[in-house]
């Protein structure tokens, strides 16, 4: 069975890969916010140009980046269609109750561009950051929530354990499925209800095994002196380097320019 690539990490050795995960997370946030700030064609062109530069810097093949758009294609078409047909304004074309307006087209294009940029932009983060380092980054960024008694360390630990066990459980599901098929189980035919029914002999052993694994893992963690996040040191602590500071500066400049575009409406 092939290894599933979670969060679609694409391993190359680019400057973006080496950036601190916190920088990339905040950068993505800034980019998304900026997409909703800019209004005019120049603003969008600017955001698009920045995106192209980022893709170039990431050394991830362009087509590979675009693949991240596949899952939202359907939603995008629906959204654009709604905008084209349902926005009131100057009518360009009408056929029965369907009408296309100038404002509608403009709106649809805007939405489309926003969605494409948004998804591509955030996939640059997931393409260049391992899920594990992303978890580390989030733990550090959201660390301040501890004062509100949010169990930040525990959540991060849960996420990284989930990341480790998803491939194992997927493989196990595959094994159980084959074992049940060998015993005459049928997962392929029948209606929705029948197929859901057929899942029961798959899910029950899977759950039993997952619980046993969880139990074993908890014991192994305790045996290795795990006692929560307090007093714990890290082998690979997050440390800001020069390039991270530079990246933050670039981010601030980008945001400033987007605000100018927003105010002027260009």
């Amino acid at each position: 069975m092939g290894e599933i690539t979670l969060g679609q990490y694409y391993p190359t050795n680019s400057i973006l890969h080496r950036l601190d995960p916190r920088v990339k997370f905040l950068g993505t946030l800034v980019y998304v916010v900026s997409l909703f700030l800019v209004r005019g064609p120049f603003g969008y062109a600017f955001c698009g140009a920045v995106l192209l530069v980022l893709i170039f810097l990431s050394k991830v093949p362009f087509l590979y980046v675009l693949r991240s758009l596949k899952p939202i294609l359907f939603i995008m078409i629906i959204t654009m269609a709604f905008n084209v047909f349902l926005t009131p304004g100057t009518i360009l074309w009408r056929w029965g109750f369907l009408k296309i307006t100038e404002e509608g087209i403009r709106m649809a294009v805007k939405m489309g561009i926003r969605l494409v940029f948004l998804v591509t932009g955030s996939s640059i983060m997931t393409l260049t950051t391992t899920p594990n380092s992303l978890t580390d980054g989030m733990e550090s960024l959201f660390g301040f929530l501890r004062i509100f008694h949010v169990p930040v360390h525990e959540i991060a630990m849960m996420m990284s354990i989930a990341l480790r066990f998803i491939p194992i459980l997927t493989e196990e599901t595959d094994k159980i499925r084959k074992a049940q098929i060998a015993r005459g189980a049928d997962f392929e035919t029948g209606g929705f209800i029948k197929r859901m029914r057929a899942m029961i002999p798959l899910l029950v052993p899977l759950f039993v095994s997952a619980f046993r694994r969880a139990n074993d893992l908890a014991m192994a963690m305790e045996a290795r002196c795990y006692h929560g996040g307090s007093g714990r040191t890290r082998m690979k602590p997050l440390r800001y380097e020069r390039r991270d500071v530079v990246a933050y500066a670039a981010m601030a400049a980008f945001l400033a320019i987007c605000i100018v575009f927003s105010v002027t409406g260009l």
Partner: peptide, 26 residues
């Protein structure tokens, strides 16, 4: 069961798990 006692997603990070819990310097 080796699968149920490895915590890290990378080999060296897993080996580091115990020492990290002991609060040893990086």
């Amino acid at each position: 069961n080796p699968d149920n006692q490895i915590i890290g997603t990378v080999v060296d990070e897993d080996v580091a798990f115990g020492p990290e819990n002991l609060g040893i310097s990086t």
